[in-house]
Computed example of a mutant assay.
Amino acid sequence: MPVLSHLLRCCIGAFLVLLLSLGSAGASLAAGSDASPGALLFEQHCAGCHINGGNIIRRGKNLKLKTLEREQIATVDAIAAIAREGRGQMSGYADVLGRDGDQLVAEWVLMQAQNAWTQG
């Protein structure tokens, strides 16, 4: 009986590990369904405040196309400059985005804004 009990505990433990790994893999795939470098950089460094193009700190400073156009920053270069150098309360991210990371994020952000931030 002790062997059967031990075997059952091992199977349950393995099953739980499998469930946890499937859950985290699914969450990663859902979060990064667009595996482009710009999307990955955005997810790592920007999405904490700019979820789906919004802004959890200052609602009016979002990444929606209407806002980008109103602020006259609806270009890759303008968005890249803000990502790199910061603006207002937002710090610059040049160090963490790496070489050309600002451009990659900006291209992805502008594409998302033009598509009304619809994912998938």
Results as ranks from 00 to 15, higher is better:
Val109Asn: 02
Leu18Thr: 10
Ile12Asn: 07
Val17Ser: 07
Ala106Pro: 02
Pro37Ser: 15
Leu18Arg: 11
Gln114Phe: 05
His45Asn: 07
Asp34Met: 04
Asp100Thr: 08
Glu43Asp: 13
Pro2Glu: 14
Ile79Pro: 00
Cys11Tyr: 08
Arg59Asn: 05
Thr75Ala: 04
Gln112Val: 06
Val105His: 05
Leu16Gly: 08
Val3Ile: 15
Ala78Glu: 01
Gly38Tyr: 04
His45Ile: 01
Ala47Arg: 07
Leu8Met: 13
Gln114Asp: 00
Ala31Thr: 14
Arg87Cys: 00
Arg59Leu: 08
Arg59Glu: 08
Val3Gln: 13
Ala116Val: 05
Glu43His: 14
Gln44Met: 06
Asp77Cys: 02
Ala14Lys: 04
Cys11Gln: 13
Ser28Lys: 13
Ser91Met: 11
Gly86Phe: 09
Ala94Gly: 01
Arg9Trp: 09
Gly32Tyr: 00
Gly98Tyr: 06
Leu63Arg: 01
Ser21His: 08
Asn62Ile: 00
Met1Asp: 14
Ser5Glu: 01
Pro2Tyr: 10
Arg58Trp: 15
Ser24Met: 13
Leu8Glu: 06
Leu7Cys: 11
Ser33His: 14
Leu110Thr: 05
Ala80Ser: 13
Gln112Lys: 05
Cys49Leu: 02
Leu110Ala: 02
Phe15Gln: 04
Ala30Leu: 13
Arg84Ser: 04
Ser28Gly: 12
Ser28Asn: 12
Gly98Gln: 04
Ile79Asp: 00
Arg87Pro: 03
Thr75Phe: 03
Gly26Ile: 10
Trp117Glu: 10
His50Ala: 11
Gln112Glu: 00
Gly32Gln: 03
Leu20Asn: 09
Ala113Lys: 03
Gly26Arg: 13
Leu104His: 02
Pro2Asn: 15
Leu4Met: 12
His50Arg: 14
Thr67Gln: 05
Gly86Glu: 11
Leu41Phe: 06
Leu110Glu: 01
Ala78Ser: 09
Ala81Cys: 06
Leu63Met: 08
Gly13Thr: 00
Ile73Val: 11
Pro37Met: 12
Gly54Arg: 05
Leu16Gln: 07
Ala74His: 02
Ile57Thr: 06
Ala14Pro: 01
Gly13Leu: 07
Thr67Glu: 06
Tyr93Trp: 06
Cys49Ser: 03
Gln89Lys: 08
Gly23His: 10
Arg9Met: 10
Met90Tyr: 04
Ala27His: 11
Val3His: 11
Gly26Asp: 13
Ile73Glu: 08
Ile79Thr: 00
Lys61His: 11
Val17Met: 02
Ser33Val: 14
Ala27Val: 14
Phe42Met: 04
Ala78Tyr: 02
Ser5His: 12
Thr67Ile: 07
Arg99Cys: 05
Gln103Glu: 14
Ala25Lys: 13
His45Lys: 07
Thr67Tyr: 01
Gln44Tyr: 04
Leu22Glu: 04
Cys46Arg: 01
Thr118Gly: 11
Leu22Ser: 09
Leu40Arg: 15
Leu97Ile: 01
Cys49Asn: 04
Ala106Ser: 10
Gly54Lys: 08
Ser33Gly: 15
Val17Trp: 03
Asp102Glu: 12
Ser36Trp: 06
Asp102Val: 01
Asp102Cys: 03
Gln72Glu: 15
Ser33Leu: 13
Leu65Phe: 05
Gly88Phe: 01
Glu71Ser: 15
Gly38Pro: 01
Gln119Asp: 06
Ala31Tyr: 14
His6Arg: 15
Glu43Gly: 09
Ser33Ala: 15
Cys11Ser: 15
Glu85Asp: 15
Ala47Glu: 11
Leu104Tyr: 03
Gly32Lys: 07
Glu69Lys: 12
Gln72Trp: 10
